[in-house]
Structures are given as structure tokens and as C-alpha cells.
Design a protein around this nucleic acid. Sequence first.
RNA 1: GUGGGUGUAGCUCAAUUGGUUAGAGCGCCGGACUGUGACUCCGGAGGCUGAGGGUUCAAGUCCCUUCAUCCACCCCA
Length: 442
Amino acid sequence: MDVFLPRGTRDLLPEQMKNRLRVIEIVRGVFARFGFEPLETPAFERIETLTGKYGDEGDKLIYRILKRGEGSDQGESDLALRYDLTVPLARVMAMHPEIRLPFRRYQIQPVWRADRPQKGRFREFWQCDVDLVGSTSPLADAECVAVVDSCLKTLGFSKYTIRVNDRRILADMARIAGATNPKEETSVLIALDKLDKIGRDKVHAELLGRGFVEANLQAFWDVAELSGDNDAILHALNTVLSESGRQGVEVLRQLLQGAIALGVAPAAIQIDLTLARGLDYYTGPVFETVVDEPKIGSISGGGRYDELIGMFSPTPLPAVGVSLGLERLITVMEELGMLPSAGTATEVLVAQWGADTLPETLDAARRFREAGIRTELFTEPAKLAKQFKHANARGYRWLALVGADEKAAGTISLKDLLRGEQSSLSIADAIAAVQKAGTLDA
RNA sequence: GUGGGUGUAGCUCAAUUGGUUAGAGCGCCGGACUGUGACUCCGGAGGCUGAGGGUUCAAGUCCCUUCAUCCACCCCA
């Protein structure tokens, strides 16, 4: 039988899992250090929970689960795999009004999108998500930026940019370009988002093609091409935007100030007026993180969504959150050589010499394990050369052995495969020797 | 959803314009070495050339379909 993996999925072999767990543990630790608490939700939700939250493009990418029984042959579906971790959280908040606010939660779980895979993009991938529910303060947004920054620093990243913008500023820019309804607004933002990819001329042409007029576009470019440092951009925006847009400006100002005071390097956070963010539910600040190399899109994204929870509940709740893409983090770290290439599964292989010394051999394995040393017992009565080869191939540092000589002397032989030195020791001394050499990686 | 590249041994790759029996390195297994790996030497196994169909005297090579994969677009983590 030929076996295949579904497109866009992968098996994570031990070699990959070890680095993956390492990254997850670091991120989880940072989340906890910022006071976020763990939450998990089911892999699938009722379909109406998910639809209508991500925009037209997003809805198409939701994985639907076929209905069982009647209706299955019509292709009806009433359940779907979760598309992100934000909407499930919003559902949880609506169902649990008893949760004390403000509430900080982190969630590290897989999500599914029926997308076409490419570099750094899968149909099943993990998000590391933090959200802060019940606060309208720009400090909450600043905390989200700061926690991402802290994760990246702790993981060892040095060159990255956190880009920030605000939905109200974007809406104003679309208005200036001549958009008079949400649909036109969206088309302006989609075109604007491509600016750094295809350049001003092509974006301009695209907007003209969509019916926007030269005079409005001139004013639009005056805003979109504002340059200078963050303060200069904010200052300039205040002179051209409406009341609503100026709210966004003020919030961004406080967000930047807060994030920097919380430890984000001023150079690492930049206002980017072309940052649009596709998800429908964002209402205020939006942010994403990019690295120059390798080219992989954003490694984190998020924003404020003050209306989303209200879609599930009569009492609306403001919220802001951000996600790190686990696979993208790992891809970047691999390509930048930030992860060890090989890890060691266990420290000691206990080899089998023969039936005569089997009890002593098993006892030695037990003693190593009780001492907290990762120990594999070789379960096959193979030739010693084969067992040594196995230990070597697996990257164990130590091989322990109880043969007839050792049994007679009441010792075990412990060989340091790294140095090639072997000695006959009491089990206690052998344990001490392994422990003294230090613990290798998970 | 749209467009393009690539699929040959466990892995990395060869194989004239279509032409005999599809090769190499690494790995694996066995031996030199019946209590010792990582070095050396000798020997061996391993392939429906991703799958299915077609063209041809002849297909790893050309055509179609399909699956997987990579890249770009859309969108996104």
C-alpha cells in the first residue's frame, strides 16, 4: 500500500520535536512571566462560531467537517476546524462571564487553514497566542507588543521589526483616497498592502483601475508616503486625519511609549502605514513582526478587536492579542543556525552482555534511572559491537555494561564514548561520573 | 483558487539526441575482530525510476491524468 501525507501536513520526527519543544517551552515561559494563564479549546467549533469573522478570503480557508448521518451526502457541514485561537477565546469569554477581568490567557495549539502550502505555510500549524481581555488601555496593546519582543529576544533573535498601525488610521486613509463604503475601503487597503512588494506606481495604477481619481490619490499618497521617525509620522498624521483617525494616532503614541518603557528597543518598533492586516475583526491597533532574512512573511501578527466578543455575547468586551507562528519561528531559527542540529536522546545506553548477568544489568539501568539519568536499556541480546554502534549512532555519551568480570568484581564497566575511555566502577561511582560530566540536552 | 519547477536505492545525486543488465557516495547488513563504537580493509543486500494511462520496434527520458513537494500570486502565522 502506498502511503501519503495529506498536503500541507507533516510528521514531526524526534529530531524536530526536540527543537520544537525547546522553542515552545521558552515561549510558554515568557507568556507565563507576563502573567498570562493557560487555556485550551477543542480542535473544532460549530461552524457559525467561525464564519463571518475573518473576511471573505478567510471564510474560504476554513476547514469544514462533513455532517454525519442525514445531510452527509449533500456535503452539509455544521462543524469546522478552528482557524485561529482568537475566535475560540472570544467564544469562551462569552460563555464564561464569571471570568475575572482583565483576563490574560495564553494558548499554544494547532490551527487549520485550507490554504495552498508554500515556504513557511502549512495547512496545519501551531500558533502561540496571548490575549488580554477586558481592557481598553493602550497599555494592554503595549503589553502584547512587549511580550512578543520578549519571546523573540529570549529565543535569541536580534534583527526583527515590529510594525504597528491602526485600523482607524487606515480607514481615514481609504476615505482620503475616495472610498465611500467598506468594499471600496477594503480595495484601497489591499492595494496599499502591496506597496513594498510592487512599488508605488503599480499600486497607483491598481487604484486608478478600481475607479479612484487622481486628485484624491494625490492626497492619499501625501499620507501613505509620510516618512521619518515614529514621532514625526504621528505628528504629521494629526494634521491630516479626521477625529477618528486622530484617536488611532493617540493610541499608537501611547502604545509606542508603553512598549518602549516595557523594554522594546525603539529601533525595533516602527509605524508602518502600509500595514493592513486582513482579518475582519480588528478595530484598533494592528501589529506584525518581520525578519529581513529569510523571506517568510510575518512571524507574528495581532491587534485589537473590541467588537468580536460582542458577536457572541450581549455584553461586549474589549480585547487585544497577538500570535507567534511556531513553524515560522522554527524555520527562521533553523536557517539562521539558532538551533542545535542534533540533540541527544538519552545519556546512557545499558548494553546486554548475556543471560548470566541480566539481573545485574537490569539493576544497573534501574539505578541510573533512579538517579535521574536518562537511560536506554538495549533489549536485544545482540553482539556488543552492534550495541556500541547503536549507542554511537544515537549520540549517547555513555555505555554501561555488566559482564562476567564485572559481576565477579561487583562493578560495572562505564565507557565514555566521547573520549573512548573505559573504567570499571561501582554503580554509585558510575552514576557520579555521569552526573559530574553534566546533563546533555533533552 | 491561479501560474510555474521537481519526483530515480533509507539519504544526497548520476544515467549521450528515447537504445542492451538504471550507477556512485553515504548509510545498512556480514566478515577481518567469538567482551567494544566513532578510523581502515574485504564482501553483500537493497529499485514496478511517485502512481495510472498513452505514443514508439524501444520510455527513467516524450505526451496526458493523478498524488506529493518546492516556488510565486492571493491571503496569512
